[in-house]
Design a protein around this nucleic acid. Structure first.
Lengths: 341, 341
DNA sequence: CTGTTAGCGCTTTCAC
DNA sequence: GTGAAAGCGCTAACAG
């Protein structure tokens, strides 16, 4: 047992009941709103609560109810601004609903991910907001299947039948392409993410589609790698070595853009004069860059809020369908007309 | 009671005991390492654990032990990259020690802060890693006084007697000044943070001290405001209007730098040609700016790790003294010699 | 409606 | 060393 000798520090439900002159059960029910009491008794209890500064012990509550009023936010890396921003909106929405959020960082390690899913399965948390950005070999989908309330964010876990919220990556890719097209570009570069990630495929697909839909005569060079600074740097190195390099570039994530920008500067390529550029994500402070970088912005805040709403709502019977959050074009100054067509 | 009719989903300690042919108490003690069992029984238990896929129920454990193996990370805003980075190192260090971290965002609201402190006081979490960046009127210090294990990070809560970890702001300010001095500057600008925050005062103090220590004939203009983009923008507006504006600028936080940079660009001032600039924090991606921004970097990761260590260590008897983490000069390209002395 | 009672699953004192 | 038993503080059947 926990407290051996020392006098109890904080009032318990029993204490409140004693002071109010009712049973603990009555207090519990009243405080949880599962009963309506005559004014008189209600007041007595309220007074006792205030007087004793009573606060229910969450551990006892959780054990008894078999639920915790905690949700777990599972992310690959909380230092990543995208996930940090997501965490902010998740925490806010959760707090509004009296839910605490436990931060679970996976570094994309499958074992850790599964461990957290297991935690949900055992009801140690009420819901899981799950983000992974590595392809699944089926293990995650399996783990998630019977775990309970999990909602998958940002990146898909293929074949898993749970609520999902994604950005409209395809539309975003298309928006990027159209902007570049309208600026007059005809030779495009695309630095994409891992081909086995849904988001990467979709962004690329959207970009290609919009180009295909245009009447214009168009050339594209595509490179794929991680959503990382290093990958962006490597890809742009290759691209600018080309015979006739593109005049416009679509970077499929912020880190890719950062990597590209760094190399471009080192090689003395000017953005946007030598190369127009548009990024995807817009969680880095691109508005403060020189030039400010035009971007397709994800609705990270909306994603976080919706996720907790869904996670906490009654599970719907109808087939779960992925929600698609619209993305937004943020025009800044990194896209201009090509110098020479 | 939680589970009424349905068969229990997961094995309990009793189940393990039954299978292993010992008492629950024995299993508990064995699993917690508070006893050494004969090989035979130990094996029996191990087998049972594996067979039943037993995992202790944390809620029950917490209720019984009166502690939770959870620490709360209290921050003003997790979307802020500084706190996000801190959260990353905290989570990592906590996970290594089997501690979960609960994310608590305050938006600098005193009531929320005190609410979280109260949570600690009642042992709902084992420790509090506390960051606030608004001045305290004494309420926080009072709340923190008897709450238990709290360690204060990054910014002081004056008069509170708890373990604290800060960056060596003073030294950082001095480093910035010396770098600028050595580059040949004699007219300086400083955009500082709120004068009632320790970090802001210290950074300024260090800067002034280093200037004072130099033999050079020196002029300084100082502006103070929030650690915010808006404040940085407002301050730089005023500074560049001056008769003979500074040739070098020390911005006491990343957001200030961002604000300043934006205005400078709008006014067509070139960094570093027209104005050398150095920032403090270095959590924004300043390495990717054009030019890359020279910075005094805080050891955010170290701060997080140390905080967890201290929070979880046996409370020391000796007077708690604030730990000072060294800062580091990261030379990039935003500081050059002044054009005209 | 209200109170009594039996747990939730674990830890730990205490007696064997 | 080992087990029985009490209890952490709360909730929810069940009876009155």
């Amino acid at each position: 047992m926990s407290q051996s000798g020392k006098p109890r520090l904080h009032a318990t439900l029993r204490d409140v009941a004693a002071v109010a002159g009712v049973s603990p059960a009555a207090v519990s029910r009243y405080l949880n709103g599962s009963i309506v009491l005559p004014h008189h008794t209600a007041e007595k209890i309220d007074e006792a609560v205030v007087q004793l500064r009573y606060q229910p012990n969450p551990h006892a509550r959780r054990l008894s109810r078999g639920r915790s009023d905690m949700i777990a936010l599972v992310v690959p890396d909380i230092a990543n601004p995208f996930f940090a921003q997501l965490a902010a909106s998740v925490e806010e929405a959760a707090a509004e609903r009296g839910q605490a959020v436990v931060l679970c960082v996976t570094a994309n390690h499958k074992n850790r991910e599964i461990e957290y899913i297991e935690r949900l399965a055992r009801n140690y948390v009420d819901a899981l907001l799950f983000i992974t950005n590595h392809p699944d070999d089926g293990d995650l989908a399996a783990a998630v299947a019977n775990a309970g309330r999990v909602v998958v964010l940002d990146e898909d876990i293929a074949t898993s039948q749970v609520p999902k919220i994604f950005s409209d990556n395809e539309a975003g890719g298309a928006m990027a392409a159209r902007l570049l097209l309208e600026a007059g570009h005809r030779r495009f570069g695309l630095i994409g993410g891992p081909k086995d990630l849904m988001s990467a495929r979709e962004r690329t697909a959207g970009f290609r589609r919009a180009l295909a839909e245009s009447a214009a005569d168009v050339e594209t060079v595509e490179r794929f790698g991680d959503y990382s600074v290093a990958a962006g740097a490597a890809a742009i190195e290759a691209i600018i070595e080309m015979q006739s390099p593109p005049t416009a570039l679509f970077c499929c994530s912020d880190p890719i853009t950062l990597g590209a920008l760094k190399v471009l500067r080192a090689r003395n390529w000017k953005v946007p004069q030598d190369l127009s550029l548009i990024t995807f994500d817009d969680v880095g402070p691109f508005d403060f860059f020189d030039p400010p970088i035009t971007a397709i912005r994800q609705d990270v805040t909306g994603m976080g809020r919706r996720a907790v709403e869904i996670a906490l709502a009654e599970p719907k019977d109808d087939t779960v369908e992925a929600i698609r959050l619209p993305v937004q074009l943020v025009e800044r100054a990194s896209v201009v007309a090509p110098r020479n067509r």
